[in-house]
């Protein structure tokens, strides 16, 4: 097994709920949105780890907490064995270049007033990492690596002058220019048209092969994740419910939630079996998650124990972890 680059243990991120003045006065209890509620996750060197879940399950919060865009409530984040979860922002600077983040919306994540050269070189300038000449070389290489060619023809363009797919690759180049070892990509293609998604995804695969960069690929789209991720973790209401290699997870899902997800995904083939619904209702609020297994109110197989005891993530088969009382 290859070495771990990032791991988190018992990671929690709660958002306090803002309430009216009177209710604060009369009730001691604080309400929290438990967006991430005790997550153990490991990303290995040179792998693309998928993090799959429905909207509101806390996957983006988890991603942002790992890169310390958000401060964790509890738990640890180890980057190459070093705990960065409690480092103050000024000590964090030296990890900033190593851990990068790619945002979902390429239309929002780049400043519309900056040229592409300025956008890509921003990290180098902020951290004073390179001389003027060096900056240009590194921007050139980064743009080439994300297949924006010829790179110099993009230098003076503004974001609105390039397409969405190119813009997302500019955002990748901005992260890449700092020579990161780990990148969290938050739904990097969900805003793009299907016909050009693969162009961006393939860039990620290239970077993994060429520089050995590890990725945490956050997505709601299990079908895409299957094709580009090495391993996939499925998240439900702030918790990881299943982790396995991508093929095994899709072909032999163990957790009823994973099974429901897969059954609900349509296939671009009219001959294939129709979608089926194997879970009742919709994802509940993260303010008051269900007791016991969080999936039990929707689970077709739920029994007494599920309502009382919270299942732990256990290795059922080699490399296949699941948090379910059925196994």
């Amino acid at each position: 097994m290859s070495e771990t680059i990032v791991s988190c243990k018992g990671l929690k991120k709660y958002f306090p709920l803002r309430r009216g003045f009177l209710s604060t006065l009369f009730s001691r209890e604080n309400l929290y949105v438990r967006a991430v509620d005790g997550v153990d996750l490991e990303v290995r060197k040179n792998e693309i780890m998928g993090l799959i879940g429905e909207s509101g399950c806390g996957k983006t919060t988890l991603g942002k907490t790992i890169v310390r865009l958000l401060d964790p409530t509890e738990g640890s984040i180890l980057f190459k064995g070093e705990d960065i979860s409690k480092l103050p922002q000024n000590k964090l600077i030296k990890y900033r270049t190593k851990i990068q983040f790619i945002f979902q919306d390429p239309y929002e994540s780049v400043n519309p007033r900056y040229t592409i050269f300025d956008i890509v070189s921003e990290g180098l300038r902020i951290n004073k990492l390179a001389s003027k000449e060096d900056i240009e070389n590194r921007v050139y290489t980064a743009l080439k690596d994300v297949r924006l060619e010829p790179p110099e023809s993009f230098y003076d363009l503004y974001p609105h002058e390039v397409s969405g797919g190119q813009r997302q690759r500019v955002a990748i180049a901005r992260a890449l220019v700092l020579n990161p070892e780990f990148i969290v990509a938050d739904e990097p293609v969900s805003m793009l048209d299907v016909s050009i998604r693969a162009e961006v995804l393939n860039v990620m695969l290239d970077l993994k092969d060429k520089y050995g960069i590890s990725f945490l690929f956050i997505s709601h789209d299990l079908a895409t994740a299957k094709h580009i991720c090495d391993r996939i973790a499925v998240m439900y209401l702030g918790k990881i419910v299943e982790i396995a290699s991508s093929e095994e997870l899709v072909d032999k899902p163990l957790h009823p939630y994973t099974q429901a997800l897969i059954a609900a995904i349509p296939v671009p083939d009219p001959r294939a079996p129709k979608v089926t619904v194997k879970a009742k209702g919709e994802i509940p609020s993260a303010i008051n998650p269900p007791k016991g297994c969080r999936f039990h109110p929707r689970c077709p197989f739920a029994f007494e124990r599920c309502r009382i005891e919270e299942p732990q993530l256990r290795e059922i088969e080699p490399g296949h972890f699941v948090a379910c009382h059925l196994y």
């Binding site: 990068q100 983040f101 945002f103 979902q104 994540s109 921003e122 990290g123």
Partner: peptide, 9 residues
């Protein structure tokens, strides 16, 4: 996004 992006940088 770009404000958060600058923070990541």
């Amino acid at each position: 996004g770009y404000i958060e992006a600058a923070r990541v940088l």
